[in-house]
Amino acid sequence: MSLSHARVASVDKICDATRPAWWIKFGGGAYRVNFDIHRAFGLWTWAMLLVFAWSGVGFNLDAVYRPTMKALFGFADLPAALPPRAETLEAPLLDWRAARAVGRRLLDERARREGFAVESEALLSFDRSRGVYTLVARSSPEIGANTRAMVVFDADSGALRAATWPGDSAERAGNSIGRWFARLHTASIFGLPMKILVCAMGFAICVLSVTGIYIWWKKRKARRFRKTHGASAGAALEATIAE
């Protein structure tokens, strides 16, 4: 056998060894089927699971998310770089309706100046520690390095404090990656197919949770049996379960 044929044969053996991990063998016992479902669902959906997991970190753990993105890709944390107030602002002079009107005006002014179009508003938030409102809007171009415009303004006076827009030179790769992850997480791009995929991912996560608990419970049962009846009996039980 030639060297090239030997390499092809070794690659085929590796593929044959790993291929079962991607499929579900329904002919085995309940534990085996459950384990195959858990493993196959995890392998087929791992990319979207990563998107959901990391975007979830971005939504809830900003203190972890921003430093990590900055270290890996670069991240322009313009709004977060605003200095905090000495005391939190609990009752701003601008209420939500007034803040929305001010944010719209600031976005329109920025759009005329920078040459982009505001398509729809996406988020209005209030930061008490810095005393600012943030209005985020979807903007043209729809697909690009930066597809959203944002204005940050004082919650009392309405004065503009910070802004980003499509093509803003302050943007970094981490901002773009994070924005794409967030839009994939919320199914705000690619229309109905993406919404269907996100629904399917919700089902997959439920399946992974249920099968994961079942696997843990069976392994826990085997460990307790081993402590009670000895290592050999526990190994025999685990082998029976895995069939």
Rank of each mutant, 00 (worst) to 15 (best):
I177E: 00
G103E: 00
R223K: 15
R97P: 09
M150C: 00
F26V: 14
G29K: 02
F225S: 01
R32C: 06
A53T: 11
T147V: 15
G144D: 03
D36K: 08
A163P: 02
A99L: 06
F203Q: 12
R179Q: 08
A86H: 13
W44M: 09
A122Y: 02
A99R: 01
L160K: 00
T228Y: 09
A17M: 14
E238H: 06
A137R: 00
V207R: 14
L237W: 08
E114Q: 14
T18M: 12
G144K: 01
A76S: 04
V151G: 02
A117Q: 07
S140C: 07
S120L: 14
F153S: 02
P166K: 00
V33S: 06
P193I: 08
R105C: 07
G144F: 06
D154T: 14
R113G: 05
M69Q: 03
R220S: 12
K227S: 13
V207C: 11
P84G: 15
N60S: 12
V152H: 01
L72N: 10
G29Q: 04
T18R: 09
V51F: 11
L135M: 07
F59Y: 13
D108M: 09
K13Y: 14
G115H: 14
T228C: 08
F26I: 10
F190Y: 08
M150K: 02
D12K: 14
R226I: 05
G74M: 04
V151P: 01
K25A: 12
E109S: 11
D108G: 14
V33N: 03
A239V: 14
A145M: 12
I24Y: 06
R161I: 09
A149W: 05
F52V: 05
A222Q: 02
S129P: 09
R161L: 10
R224I: 10
I177P: 00
E243V: 15
A149R: 02
L89Y: 09
K195C: 08
S209P: 02
E121A: 00
W96E: 13
P141G: 06
A222V: 02
R19L: 08
P67E: 10
R220F: 15
R104G: 11
H229I: 03
A163Y: 04
A91H: 15
D95G: 12
G58H: 01
R161F: 04
G202C: 04
D62A: 09
L135W: 02
G28H: 03
G202S: 03
V210G: 05
V33H: 00
A99T: 05
T18C: 11
G103I: 00
L106Q: 01
R128A: 11
S4L: 13
S176I: 07
D168F: 07
V102D: 05
S2R: 12
F203D: 10
A47N: 13
F26R: 13
D12P: 08
R223I: 13
E243F: 15
R110T: 13
A17I: 15
R39I: 09
P141A: 10
F181D: 00
A239C: 12
G174Q: 03
A53R: 12
A21M: 13
M194W: 06
A40S: 15
M69G: 01
R183W: 13
R32D: 06
C15E: 10
W180C: 06
W22G: 12
G178N: 00
E87W: 12
A86I: 09
E238W: 12
H38D: 09
K221R: 12
V210I: 15
P84N: 15
R7H: 14
S140N: 09
T134S: 06
A6K: 13
L197N: 05
